[in-house]
């Protein structure tokens, strides 16, 4: 059997190459968080909340969470659906490449791209928005968001396995955008309607946002509570993925 590490490296590099050559996807995912921050964040970037926390840092943390979540949900959701549509999975299944290696390569690639996306956003916020924080704060945001992205990877897979290549982008939008809005990732929660504020604490994006907000000193939930919610959503989305995956397997490969 060929070396698993060699397979993983080659597979990951290929995935990166594919993403790099699909600018419609990668440029959109890089540009949107920056654009959103420009519209929703820049005007307030130099202000501070009454509790002394930088509004700019808070909003950068919000859009960083949005950015990583969207790389995962759209990347896996659309990517998996498109590959299934082209029957890439059929050929790959007949090769000795273990499926776990293929998935791990996709995850590594998504993490690398998320990292790039967040770094671009933060550098933009620092240079254009004049937001100032210790380097450790920025690093903290990045590490927490990457480490906590599992539920969104699972959500992406669930979308990718339960919809076709045409439906997947719409479904991803339909699920992810309302989640992000209602959780205060686009504007602080207290500016949103009352009923949204009551729903938010049940949403995965809200608890994901907590990881970033606590890094800038502005959490509204204990970190352990948010981690528990995120773990729960990971299990839920994985279960949905497994159901869709099994249904497809029984059709294609039984």
């Amino acid at each position: 059997m060929a070396s698993l590490l060699r397979m993983l490296v080659a597979q990951t590099l290929s995935e990166l190459r594919i993403r790099w050559r699909t600018p419609a996807f990668s440029a959109t995912n890089l540009a949107l968080p920056v654009l959103f921050f420009t519209f929703f964040g820049l005007p307030f970037a130099r202000q501070t909340f009454p509790n002394g926390i930088s509004v700019g840092a808070y909003l950068l943390a919000s859009f960083a969470a949005y950015a990583v979540g969207s790389v995962m949900v759209y990347g896996f959701g659309i990517g998996v659906a498109v590959e299934r549509g082209m029957k890439v999975d059929l050929l790959m299944r007949a090769t000795p490449l273990p499926p776990g290696i293929a998935i791990l390569a996709k995850v590594l690639n998504a993490l690398a791209f998320s990292l790039l996306s967040v770094v671009v956003l933060i550098v933009y916020g620092i240079i254009v928005g004049g937001v100032r924080q210790d380097l450790t704060v920025w690093i903290n945001i990045v590490v927490r968001l990457l480490a906590g992205s599992l539920p969104f990877i699972a959500l992406g897979f669930a979308i990718g396995y339960s919809s076709g290549p045409n439906a997947a982008p719409a479904l991803a939008n339909l699920i992810y955008l309302p989640l992000a809005f209602a959780s205060g990732l686009f504007m602080p929660l207290r500016q949103l309607p009352d009923f949204v504020q009551r729903i938010a604490p049940y949403l995965p994006t809200y608890h994901y946002g907590q990881l970033a907000w606590s890094a800038v000193g502005a959490p509204s939930e204990p970190l352990t509570t948010s981690l528990a919610w995120l773990a729960g959503y990971t299990l839920l989305f994985m279960a949905l993925t497994m159901r869709a995956y099994r249904r497809e397997q029984s059709l294609k490969f039984a």
Binding site: M1, I18, E83, K87, V88, L90, A94
Partner: peptide, 17 residues
């Protein structure tokens, strides 16, 4: 599988490589 090569009727591959 490591000793077998395969050409299938209906399969696809990534286009951008």
């Amino acid at each position: 599988r490591s000793r077998a090569g395969v050409m299938l009727q209906e399969s696809g591959t990534t286009g951008v490589l």
